[in-house]
């Protein structure tokens, strides 16, 4: 089937904004609806739009499968290590280890922002990989 010009063009222009929106959701997760998981899914949907409109090879070039895999694994380990850091500092698992800051600011709510980023990247990579594997075969 021939590829539609409109689809390729629009999706190419749209993808950066989708990714940006995903990042916005991740970084404002502790202040407004959103957060790591939702932002991560939006990130993944951006990559998937590129995948569907431009085919596998182009996506492979900008988002190699190996890197996605590695991102996912490292992020989980980082999350666990952050949790264990609380344990090492004499508090309990996953207790806050950073300053709380002022409510409503972007760097606030302790390490929630950090956790949101970790989860966002992990979920984005994970969902993208799931769809890669399912679509390819």
């Amino acid at each position: 089937m021939e590829r539609s010009q409109i689809v390729t063009m629009v999706s190419r222009k749209l993808v950066p904004f989708i990714l940006l929106f995903g990042l916005y959701l991740i970084s404002y997760g502790h202040l407004s609806p959103g957060g790591g998981f939702q932002g991560g899914v939006v990130l993944a949907s951006g990559i998937l739009l590129l995948f569907l409109s431009h085919g596998f090879t182009l996506v492979q070039r900008s988002f190699p499968e190996r890197h996605l895999n590695l991102t996912e694994l490292v992020m989980v380990l980082l999350f666990l290590l952050l949790g264990l850091a609380g344990l090492l500092l004499g508090k309990s698992f996953l207790s806050n280890i950073l300053l709380l800051g002022e409510a409503g600011e972007i760097p606030s709510a302790g390490f929630i922002l950090l956790l949101n980023m970790i989860i966002g990247l992990k979920v984005g990579a994970g969902i993208t990989l799931i769809c890669f594997y399912l679509f390819r075969s």
Binding site: L70, L73, V74, L77, L80, L84
Partner: peptide, 16 residues
């Protein structure tokens, strides 16, 4: 908590 976290940590370490 270590009883839960240790296997989880090692499972992802195996993959990594």
């Amino acid at each position: 908590i270590l009883l839960i976290v240790l296997p989880l940590l090692s499972s992802f370490l195996v993959l990594l």
